[in-house]
Simulated scan of single mutants.
Amino acid sequence: MKLIKPILIIAILLLVSCDKTNVYATIDNDFKDNRWFKSSIRTLKLEVKKEASSYDLFFDFRHVHDFQFSEIPIQFRIEDPNGKVSVEKIMLSIKDEKGKDRGECMGDICDLRQVIFSEKELIKGDYTISISHQFQGEYLPNVISIGLSLKEIFK
């Protein structure tokens, strides 16, 4: 199991790096005992290098197969280069209506990607994104990693 995590992370990074529209991707896999505590707000930074382009932002969620919850509320606090703050909320849909995992699973690990926003115009500069879950318990169990992927939209 310990060998599978690094191999999967490297594989995902290689796949993401081959996508020419992908301008940013990061993964946070520092979840001791696969627990994402409510008090552990994750902060990731990204840089937009082009002025006034449209982008899609995705949330990447890796979890243990057969996750016990069908959906999880996730909140993103996004601070743009000018200091303006916006909040995006999604309901991360883990399972479909039949109880089947929506993500791509290999062995006991599943990868899920869900859009945070689509075709949004962003200004050039550094962004800070704080990610928190709104799950009711003290921690969200069976979380392996979270990440963000930013893709430029070409029209």
Rank of each mutant, 00 (worst) to 15 (best):
Q114V: 05
L14D: 05
Y139H: 15
L15Q: 09
K100H: 09
V87T: 14
I12M: 12
N22S: 10
K151G: 03
D56R: 01
K89Y: 04
K20G: 10
K98D: 13
I7H: 01
E51P: 01
N34C: 06
M91P: 00
R77C: 08
K155F: 11
P141D: 15
G137T: 14
N142D: 15
P73L: 06
T128M: 04
N142K: 15
I116L: 08
R42K: 15
A11G: 07
S53C: 11
R42C: 02
D60G: 08
D19T: 02
R113N: 13
F154R: 15
W36N: 02
L57F: 01
A11E: 10
F31P: 03
I10D: 14
F61C: 07
N142S: 13
K2I: 10
S149I: 10
V115T: 14
R62F: 05
K95R: 12
T128A: 11
K124W: 05
H65N: 07
E47K: 14
S54H: 12
D80N: 15
F67E: 08
F117D: 03
R113I: 03
F31H: 04
G103Y: 03
H63G: 06
S149L: 14
F69T: 07
K151M: 13
F31I: 06
S145H: 07
F67G: 00
D30W: 07
L140W: 02
C105A: 12
K98I: 03
R62K: 03
E104L: 15
K98V: 05
V143A: 09
H63A: 04
D126T: 11
S118G: 05
I7G: 02
K45H: 10
K32S: 12
R62G: 07
S118P: 01
E51F: 04
L44F: 00
C18W: 09
G103C: 10
E138G: 11
F59P: 09
I74V: 15
M1I: 14
T43L: 07
G107F: 00
I109T: 12
D33N: 15
N29G: 14
A11D: 04
L150H: 11
G99A: 10
Q134P: 01
S132I: 07
D101F: 00
Q134T: 12
F135G: 06
C110I: 06
E152F: 01
I123F: 06
D33A: 13
K2R: 12
G83F: 00
T26M: 03
I9P: 01
L3H: 13
D60F: 04
N34K: 10
D80Q: 05
L3T: 11
K50A: 09
T26Y: 04
K50G: 04
D96F: 01
F31Q: 04
D60C: 11
V48I: 15
I131N: 00
L8N: 11
R35C: 07
I72V: 14
D60K: 08
